[in-house]
Write a protein that binds this DNA or RNA. Structure first.
Lengths: 247, 247
DNA sequence: AAGTGGTCTAGACCACCCA
DNA sequence: GGGTGGTCTAGACCACTTC
């Protein structure tokens, strides 16, 4: 295994062996026909000069990602790529780029308001505490995709309302405030759009939309943001793979 | 660790040590306050007389399930339970029971039809091959929750249309045909219900619904079923936790 | 019966957090 | 600097599939 385990001046992605191996195997696997058997774990270990446990770490990740499947006693095989994309936490910007669409923002409102009960509870603050509220119309390839309504605890983002809010909010939060969501609780439902929403999204009144309510959490499960996003039903869907419970 | 690793006459759930340990830790964790530190991995290993790797297997599962979180150099902690329920493959019956609702079925139609292009492609069969099509109205606590439109390759489920189709189809498939979905690809979107749908679901015409298209796959990623389920927007939502990509 | 993935061990060193 | 989780090793046995 190539031993590129250095560190530059910056905390550039450090590479564990199992992670390097995972990438190498993923590259091979994507060029192979579904159901083709991979080499045995012992073969891979010998070939890459690592222990079998390290191979298993890499394969576990690939299996969790839906790239391969394993059958005890038989072997490890290339999965058929139907979608094979498990749901992960993404910003609108990332989400659109993954769909090969150009993301864009129009700022509608930005200001400081009282939290209110629902948001306060989800953010773990008092109902009369201040939150920064930002509403934006988000576009993909120049036409409306969704409405975003973000709430952030004002105490954690001083001066945010004065920043440039037309780009990726997640990037801004990470760079300026060191706030990074590593997980989120989401609730997805279908709604009838009201007149304001349908006008902004450019669809006929009374059509349906997909509403996603998300509470973003940092590494220690402390809430960072509570966001409601309302998507056009005709342009947006959510695709993912689910697996059987192991428990 | 209690050594209950026997086998009855039937292939009753065999218990690996890491699985027993996972259950034991989960039971402890659910009685603790969020952010309480767990014992160190080395402590747990010593206390349960297993190796540290086995402890890590158990903790990995708990972390993936959102029950605990780990901070390198600091420790492992009880996660705050906001929802902490990752999406897993469930049947309607299981889904309703998890919500403390009583599931029920009304069979609308059952018969053999030609697959059609979309379903044929997703099931991996010819477009003019036969599929069993079953449509059902599903109720929760006695009132309509969703419409189900199931397609199964006729070749794999001979005689299915004559069975009792008012219970859990997943159970029936598992018992009679040894067909068990272990993963599924899902597409979620919002739709405007048509007149037939809204009448059956008991909601005003023109309201919105949540439509889930699912292709169920067996252990070897071979398609078993293609199902469209249309839920009432006012009674149903999807809740789950997402995490940041490790890659 | 041979070979596969699944589990488990005992030990080691590293990167990171915190007092 | 001491303790934590993160990684890695070399070896072993088991359960299962396949021939």
């Amino acid at each position: 295994m190539a031993s590129t385990r250095k560190r530059g001046g910056k905390p550039v992605a450090p590479q564990a062996k199992h992670e390097e191996l995972r990438r190498a195997l993923l590259a091979e696997v994507t060029d192979m026909q579904p159901h083709t058997p991979l080499p045995t774990e012992r073969d891979i270990a010998a070939r890459h000069a690592v222990s079998r446990n390290t191979v298993r770490q890499a394969l576990n990740a690939l299996e969790a990602a839906g790239s391969v499947y394993r059958v005890q006693g038989a072997g490890t095989f290339v999965a058929s790529r139907v979608i094979s994309k498990s749901l992960s936490l993404t910003s609108f910007t990332e989400d659109m780029r993954a769909r090969d669409l150009r993301p864009e923002s129009r700022l509608l409102t930005a200001g400081v308001v009282r939290a209110g009960t629902r948001v306060a509870e989800d953010l773990g603050i008092e109902p009369d505490a201040e939150v920064v509220r930002i509403t934006r119309l988000r576009l993909a390839d120049g036409s409306p995709m969704c409405l975003e309504n973000v709430h952030l605890p004002a105490a954690r983002v001083p001066g945010l309302a004065e920043e440039d809010l037309t780009g990726s909010l997640y990037d801004l939060l990470a760079e300026r405030y060191r706030l990074e969501a590593h997980a989120a609780e989401q609730i997805v439902r279908a709604v009838d759009l009201d007149d304001t929403e349908s006008a902004l999204l450019g669809v006929p009144p009374g059509t349906s939309g997909l509403r996603v309510y998300r509470v973003g959490l940092d590494r220690r499960d402390s809430p960072i943001e509570a966001t409601t996003t309302t998507y056009r039903a005709d342009r947006y869907d959510i695709r993912f793979t689910v697996r059987r419970n192991q428990s």
